[in-house]
Design a protein around this nucleic acid. Sequence first.
DNA 1: CATGAATGAGTCTTCATTCAT
DNA 2: GATGAATGAAGACTCATTCAT
Lengths: 186, 186, 186, 186
Amino acid sequence: MGKRQDIMDATLDLIHEEGLQSVTLAKVLKKAKVGWGTTFNYFESKEVLINEVYKESRIHMGNYLMQNYNEHLTVYEKFKILQTNRINYGLEHPKEFLFIDLYSYSPLIPASLRDFDAAGSTNAVQSMILEGQKTGLIKSIDPHLCHQLIHGIIHSVVRGYLINKYPFDDLQIQQTIEASWKAIQQ
Amino acid sequence: MGKRQDIMDATLDLIHEEGLQSVTLAKVLKKAKVGWGTTFNYFESKEVLINEVYKESRIHMGNYLMQNYNEHLTVYEKFKILQTNRINYGLEHPKEFLFIDLYSYSPLIPASLRDFDAAGSTNAVQSMILEGQKTGLIKSIDPHLCHQLIHGIIHSVVRGYLINKYPFDDLQIQQTIEASWKAIQQ
Amino acid sequence: MGKRQDIMDATLDLIHEEGLQSVTLAKVLKKAKVGWGTTFNYFESKEVLINEVYKESRIHMGNYLMQNYNEHLTVYEKFKILQTNRINYGLEHPKEFLFIDLYSYSPLIPASLRDFDAAGSTNAVQSMILEGQKTGLIKSIDPHLCHQLIHGIIHSVVRGYLINKYPFDDLQIQQTIEASWKAIQQ
Amino acid sequence: MGKRQDIMDATLDLIHEEGLQSVTLAKVLKKAKVGWGTTFNYFESKEVLINEVYKESRIHMGNYLMQNYNEHLTVYEKFKILQTNRINYGLEHPKEFLFIDLYSYSPLIPASLRDFDAAGSTNAVQSMILEGQKTGLIKSIDPHLCHQLIHGIIHSVVRGYLINKYPFDDLQIQQTIEASWKAIQQ
DNA sequence: CATGAATGAGTCTTCATTCAT
DNA sequence: GATGAATGAAGACTCATTCAT
């Protein structure tokens, strides 16, 4: 049971351990304990495999980001939940988090894949921003820029933690979320 | 004179156009219009070539970041200059900017190279943060975290612009710098 | 079945025809009618391939040298059998014989490979010499020198024949063996 | 002084230190402290250079072998002088001795070069054998075979010494010469 | 004469992909 | 479905040779 998943798991592990460019199918199938042919039964090429892993990670993260989120919360509550979820996702699932970050900006990624909105989380962030701007809570800056800004803070800070630059506990998490809120607050 | 530079320029161009992993020496030397042997006369391996390009870019950016900077400015002036310079560097030299961002977090980079402080700009940022925290202008958060935070905003926002997510003119630049200041302001 | 052996055979043929230094994998795999990848499925590098061919040749020769040999023969009978076998091996298997001679003295060979005693034939020669010296049949000279001496005669003479310097039939074989015996006889 | 000789000396040194196949012109000209162009001013190709080094070594050895030799000595005296000289040449000039041995049996050597009789030493050995056979001192075996036999003993034994298999002083030298004489003595 | 930058054919090696079993 | 032997295009790197100065 689960050869397909074994292959994807092994791929993500290898990306995390050795980096995307040094992942070879030979390593993947050795780690996943499957044969050459099996791999190609499930994924028609290496590229497809990588893209599937990315897609799965995006869906996984997308769902995670939407935890505790609902339409009826205040803007600030939405903001806090989305940012907290994003941080926690990075802390709990660093492999997926870093791979998404890396691959999203790689020239190899198909545009359609990069832009797809898993679980509607991108849309949630956008509408939270628009709502905040309408009510005067959030500064009137280009919503995409605003999105990139608060998103970028989280990724940068979590990435810095993951390569061991500094401690990152509850205190730092609060500070980071507050900083990102101040950054865009009216 | 100039073959060495031709090779490095061609390399950086190719990294920008096709991504680090799809840079092959064959493409580089074709673009630089030199022969195989020539490449190896100047760089003992492909790895060395990439590292040299990175180093040169870091030095270039380091010097750029220090423009108009001096010890006697106020904390806020220092902050503004360093952040503005970083943005402008990204806008004027996107190839170097993106490559530095990419390679700095790649598993291929030698640690010594990643951590070297070209032109003292890293140090300038650090001491600006410490000075601001001492005078109560900047929040008391881990200085490395603070550094990563304001650095990350710029990189994220410029990177977003460079892949055409939104317009990015004087207004947006001001907004970004202000946002990054608010993020860490006491 | 037999790709591995095809590759080794082609390698030995090429070494014999063109010399060790002009053996390229391209020639080997063309002669063996296999693809590039196949070669590396069986031998992790060219060096390993050469060493395997050497090892196989040494084992082959080692077994051949021990034909008709047993512990209970007289010293002279042992001597005659070992020397005759060595000559016949050279005549029947010139490719292996010359390659062993060549590679054994090459700086490329790993010491462990050079010194391994395939089929115990080296040991057999040594103990034959020691036994002969104890019974007074063979002169009291350093056993390794003695070994090198009688071994060297055979190799030199067979090698001379193989590059067509003179006829080499039963008569010459007898003369050579007798000469090598007289050389060390008390 | 003598760029040409510097190059040849460096070549022979390198052959001795690293083996014929790992000698590159780059190493030679670095060791000889000359430029690329200089090398090609004196030797039109690498092959020519190697052949010149071989030729020079052969002439050197040829002259050495003829030391103390003259037509009027007895057969045994001639034999002893020629064999002793050959051993001493090996001991005093191992680089040339081993290279000659190696290259003479390499498939790369031009036949004309292999067969040329520097200083007439080959001829001296041949006529010594013929004279000895005529007077009944030496066995009636093919003169070329006989030549190869006594030549081969020396090379094998000296080569064995040079790679440190056993001590080789006056005693062993005498034993070796005597052994080679017994081998062909009537 | 002496030099060394420039060259590219040739070498080993990697790795995604195919296909017969 | 599962397997892995066979493959060859494409990669980095070497090194003898040329030629302008």
